[in-house]
């Protein structure tokens, strides 16, 4: 056996062992990282189903979803019309009302001010929508920022209508 072949064989053995050990160590690391991901009990609460039957037009409810408040408002025809009439260039964060709702009657948004995280008050402010008392941000009937320091419109969460009277958020 020449010097060359034996060195090659030796290197092959070392490299194989080293790679195999490294692969195992990498696989070992995953559980330690994954344990910090949301666990099963948290994920079980990741989506919430809401019964919409008790909500009349012009009424809002606030539910807790993933630890955050979510506004569910059954808008009146006036509010819907007002929202759709607004021109995009009037908006600090341009977004059409039709892009913010699946069913125009139901406005569903995360009730956290996009400025610094306070919860805006409903049916207040200069635009008939929401008003954040912390630093004076005004949102309209579509939850879009109109005036004040908040940079973006109120967030629309992922949701789906399971039927006419039930919506699943998240």
């Amino acid at each position: 056996m020449s010097e060359d072949t034996s060195v090659t064989r030796r290197n092959f053995l070392y490299i194989t062992t080293g790679s195999f050990a490294a692969a195992g160590s990498a696989a070992l690391a995953w559980p330690f990282v994954d344990q910090m991901n949301p666990d099963a009990s948290v994920k079980a609460l990741a989506s919430t189903e809401v019964d919409l039957t008790p909500i009349l037009p012009g009424q809002s409810i606030t539910i807790l979803w993933r630890g955050k408040p979510v506004f569910i408002r059954r808008r009146t025809p006036e509010e819907i019309t007002e929202a759709s009439k607004v021109k995009l260039d009037e908006l600090p964060d341009p977004e059409g009302d039709e892009d913010r709702v699946q069913n125009p009657e139901w406005l569903i948004m995360v009730g956290i001010c996009t400025h610094l995280g306070c919860i805006p008050l409903g049916q207040k402010g200069e635009y008939n929508g929401w008003f954040c008392p912390c630093h004076g941000s005004h949102y309209d009937t579509s939850g879009r920022i109109r005036k004040g320091p908040a940079p973006k419109n109120l967030e629309i969460p992922q949701y789906v209508f399971l039927d006419e009277n039930t919506v699943k958020i998240g």
Partner: peptide, 12 residues
């Protein structure tokens, strides 16, 4: 498998 690899590496 790793123990076999290490055994032969060690022997070498």
């Amino acid at each position: 498998i790793l123990s076999f690899l290490l055994y032969f590496t060690n022997r070498r």
